[in-house]
Amino acid sequence: MILDELKKDLNRKFGLSDIYDEGSTSGRVLYFDIGYGEKFVLFTLPIDKDFDLSLLKYSMPLEVLKESVRRFIEIKAPTGYRIRFLISFDKEDRYNPVISHISKIGKDKILILVNLEETGLGNEKIVINGLDYMSLLKIDKILDENKFRIGKIFRKDGISLAYKTDIKVLEFVSFPNEFKDVLKREFFDKKRVDFIVMFIFTFLKKVFR
């Protein structure tokens, strides 16, 4: 089971011993906090039964998650809010545990939800469905100032997490990328992981200073 391995891995690499593990009838949730504060910034990685570590599509978001955990622990912990990493597994709908966890925490306590699906594949576009006007303006400013080559996209297909919750959601989609479903794990590239983690960190720094 991938969640057990991930738990062991996180424990060994970063010394994270207080990882909460909650199971329900259909799904399972793994979460841990970094930093202190009343409000949350949620980093989620929803997993369903199609998950296959040999494919690039599923292994890169995991690398992005590990890299962001590493940066939060080794470089700088967040101040004023806490980061909650939430890795969820559900057989039918991978978003179900995330949504139930959000209602458990309380919507007003969540500053933003960062969905790590489809990150690290290259050609990432920010899905602007779940973001408010002020955040979008700040994103425009960040993109202008830092010369990030990252586009924006509006999803009309209704798959994104922003359609299912009414909180702020920062998520990405790799578009146009016709090979993302077939590429193997060997196409791993550290630069792409660093790039997207850098963007997320700049965003959090600018928006929730």
Partner: peptide, 20 residues
């Protein structure tokens, strides 16, 4: 070959973005 195909993938991403 893997290095070559990685480079091709990178180029393909840039090109398909511009193409779109």
């Amino acid at each position: 070959l893997l290095e070559l195909s990685k480079n091709i993938y990178r180029d393909n991403l840039i090109c398909s973005d511009k193409l779109d």
